[in-house]
């Protein structure tokens, strides 16, 4: 393994600017999370063994996510999920999942570096996202556990709603778009972080 200190996350260069956001908005990259893409028939025989590995059943309601404490499982499609896991757990988790799946038709792909994850929180978080996202993130429309793949400004994004007051979100953005995303976010937060 490389020296982990030499690793560079997509938003490494933006950490100071994200950290400087204050008041109604807080944002920070959660770098190097393990992310596995899982393709599986949720009604097939592999679903249960996989649920056992994850400690939670795969969510089958579109645009939702479930957490097991260790893993966060995001619905991406009727036979597709994104599993978020602690940093560094990709190899073991992939082996465990592939064992659970056996010879069933499925796919497990390590996509940990494909996207980076940003936690966005604070009372201004929903308003900030509303500047670039057409999804209704009002708690009445997007309750805790909602997980939408959509567009934010001009980048694709996955938005996971982490509470019932629209003040805590996980945002997953493609790594090559991460700097654009961060620039957009810092720009959009101007009024929200200005002292009232």
């Amino acid at each position: 393994m490389a020296d982990p200190r030499a690793r560079r996350s997509p938003l490494a260069g933006w950490a100071p600017q994200l950290q400087a956001l204050n008041g109604a908005i807080r944002a920070q990259e959660l770098p190097f999370l393990t992310q596995l893409n899982l393709r599986l028939d949720s009604g097939g025989p592999a679903a249960d063994p996989v649920a056992k590995v994850l400690g939670v059943s795969l969510p089958t309601v579109p645009c939702t996510s479930v957490g097991s404490g260790v893993y966060e499982v995001l619905w991406l499609g009727p036979d597709e999920w994104l599993i978020l896991a602690p940093a560094g757990s990709a190899p073991e988790l992939m082996i465990a999942l592939r064992e659970a799946i056996g010879s069933e038709h499925a796919a497990v792909t390590d996509v940990s570096a494909q996207r980076t994850t940003v936690q966005l929180s604070g009372p201004g978080a929903r308003e900030l996202l509303a500047k670039g996202c057409a999804i209704d993130l009002h708690p009445a429309a997007s309750p805790e556990g909602s997980c939408v793949q959509t567009l934010l400004a001009q980048t694709g994004i996955i938005i996971v709603v982490r509470d019932g007051t629209a003040t805590d979100f996980l945002l997953l953005v493609r790594s090559s778009f991460a700097e654009y995303f961060a620039a957009w976010l810092v720009d959009a937060s101007v009024e929200l972080t200005e002292p009232a």
Binding site: G13, K131, Y180, W184, D187
Partner: peptide
């Protein structure tokens, strides 16, 4: 709106960009 200047259009970069 904000689609101007640096964020007029997404600029995609690789990890080696710096």
């Amino acid at each position: 709106g904000r689609d101007r200047g640096e964020i007029f259009d997404p600029v995609r970069v690789t990890e080696i960009h710096p």
